[in-house]
Design a protein around this nucleic acid. Sequence first.
DNA 1: TCCTTGTTGCAACGCAATCGCAACTTGTAG
DNA 2: CTACAAGTTGCGATTGCGTTGCAACAAGGA
Lengths: 147, 147
Amino acid sequence: MTQQDSQTFQDRARSAIRAAGMRWTKQRETLLDVIEHAREHLDADGLYRLARERDPRLSLATVYRTLGVLKRQGLVDELHLSEEHHHYEASSDDQHFHFVCTSCGAVTEFSASTVDRLRKELQREHGVVVQSVDLDLAGLCAKCAAA
Amino acid sequence: MTQQDSQTFQDRARSAIRAAGMRWTKQRETLLDVIEHAREHLDADGLYRLARERDPRLSLATVYRTLGVLKRQGLVDELHLSEEHHHYEASSDDQHFHFVCTSCGAVTEFSASTVDRLRKELQREHGVVVQSVDLDLAGLCAKCAAA
DNA sequence: TCCTTGTTGCAACGCAATCGCAACTTGTAG
DNA sequence: CTACAAGTTGCGATTGCGTTGCAACAAGGA
């Protein structure tokens, strides 16, 4: 399952990158793999450190440049979980948004039917064309709220 | 009307600041006034430049320090209209969110009944306590979409 | 294998925001 | 009205995320 998704994600990325006349490099492969298998939403530095475990010469500049490419290709989404810096995740088909617990820091994902409703509402009632929605929540997660 | 609101806003700010054991200074008064009467959402530098027209010695550090205080007191809201830096507005009672046109840069405000619904939904169905909602939209405004 | 051209690593840089500290104000107590 | 303790300011230096110029390098088509 993971193996299968992995194949698919790497393929998707490779195709998109090659289709844009860019090259499929060792570094990009490494970074893609780290992003995909990360079990939390990494920031650039976390990604950098994990990638360096496999390729110690890989530079932080390359991390940022690669993230830029992947963002533009729609392969990763940039999250605003903290004020200080960005986090990233492999983009998926189902829209969702993030909830950060102010007490324990846990990140919960919620599906975004509400956001879709909002988008259509604005489009219909105000004539605007919504291109991107950025919804970030913070508060107490269920566990911390109960304690 | 503007005069009356002005009085109220300044009063509110002064009280809040004094209540926290802080001092009501010339600089804070200037900045509050600029924020209140700004007709667009200023960034720190814009605020700095406008404030300097009245008090040329006022420093950028003071702008940031004051914004920090006002944020903590809930007197101004920090907006994420651009990736590069923050914008600020005097906080108001009615919740609303911002829509930035990617073509002309115009900022439109929409009221946020949807957001309130979402908040309650999450609270009820997932047991989380929502403390802050940050909803930012981008796309084509009605004018640009029609063109 | 060669060659063109995109990519990388490195170090320097850009820029929003923050901080340390001495000089200065505020506001209250006397 | 005055003195004084404590909060605030301006300034310059600094932090930290992210970007960029450039020479060396590597991908991949011919």
